[in-house]
Design a protein around this nucleic acid. Sequence first.
DNA 1: AACAAAAATGACACCTTGTCATAATCTTCC
DNA 2: GGAAGATTATGACAAGGTGTCATTTTTGTT
Lengths: 207, 207
Amino acid sequence: MPKQTFYKLPQEKQERILAAAKREFTKVRFSDASINRMIRDAGIPRGSFYQYFEDKTDIFLFFLEDYKKEILGGFTVCIRAHGGELLSAIVDFLDDFIEEAFKNPREGIRVIVSEPWIFENIWADMLGGESSKEVSRVKQEGRSAVDWSKLDLLDEAEEEVFIHIFGAVIRDSLCEVFHRNEMSLEEAKNLFHERIESLRRHYEKRP
Amino acid sequence: MPKQTFYKLPQEKQERILAAAKREFTKVRFSDASINRMIRDAGIPRGSFYQYFEDKTDIFLFFLEDYKKEILGGFTVCIRAHGGELLSAIVDFLDDFIEEAFKNPREGIRVIVSEPWIFENIWADMLGGESSKEVSRVKQEGRSAVDWSKLDLLDEAEEEVFIHIFGAVIRDSLCEVFHRNEMSLEEAKNLFHERIESLRRHYEKRP
DNA sequence: AACAAAAATGACACCTTGTCATAATCTTCC
DNA sequence: GGAAGATTATGACAAGGTGTCATTTTTGTT
């Protein structure tokens, strides 16, 4: 996370830097992102960057806080719209997400799938772990929007385990869709549907 | 995959290069691996490297073929030892794998978790996709070593879906164990057990 | 205003990668 | 054997990346 100095900066400058970071990180994958380009874009000298951030990871994590709120917030809305049904909600959410990603070819999605720890970082916020107050709130909301009684889980421990399994499947599928060889929109959607349906068949309570 | 020129090289030189690649890729994560170090280690000039390989990814994929055979082969033996019970086999296999990884702190494991597409590449060999003849054979053996009748899967399609879900959970857990904050050996093992047990409870046929 | 602390700055050292002109070597054919 | 042609080897080079640090500028305090 940014150093003290960064937060003392005028709002305008902070935003300019965040915007440049966002442009860079949504354009190329993390490992290809360049500090050089970001500072050129933001119009700050090289030395200043290191006055504000430790390194690329540092500014990325800062940027990610924003991105997280956006994603988790949107998902929570979606869960509510589906009356707490997590699995129906995710299908809907991913359909939109993929469509969007196919429209703006590849942009943005790279943020999530480019490094294993990134999705995990996002996902962890639905579980626990240290996050900023704001993100914590968003996380709590998301979790409590789910109607857990519809799933066949023994106790809170397995509830947590399920969230991990669920997250793993989504991440894995996202990687597959956006990382490997080309795939049509229909194929991509279908890939998700199949997997979520399998989870539903085995994890939803039967009457 | 390597260019023609590489395969015309004397065996000894090929092996020297592969060995150097292996040392590099098992020491640092993919994005930090340096061609420079590899060629220095292997004692070949810079220009030659590009005569043999396209780039870092190219030599990595070459190295990975070897690594895959090792991993998939070992897992197949383990599946057989468990009479085809996939879930029991994976618990056993991962226990060993993690113990090994904790002994030689962090070495090797990086290969798998450092980039999302790597594990997928390995895993894909249990499903299909283009692989070398040798790997294909290993893959077929692995798949047919599993006693699928013990799992509650509708048809071959869901069998395939399950392999993905299964792989996703393992990869996700590996990332969690080796990527994020420190974790004790016991905690790590327990993390896997919990998740595999949940899968077992929901995916194994009930009497 | 004078002094100390904090922040800004860009040149620098050192790394990386991929290319390319040239040199060395191997093939082939007469 | 030797000359021509194809293939391979080689390291210097350009272009770009990162993190540091001595120096200048700004800010805050007495």
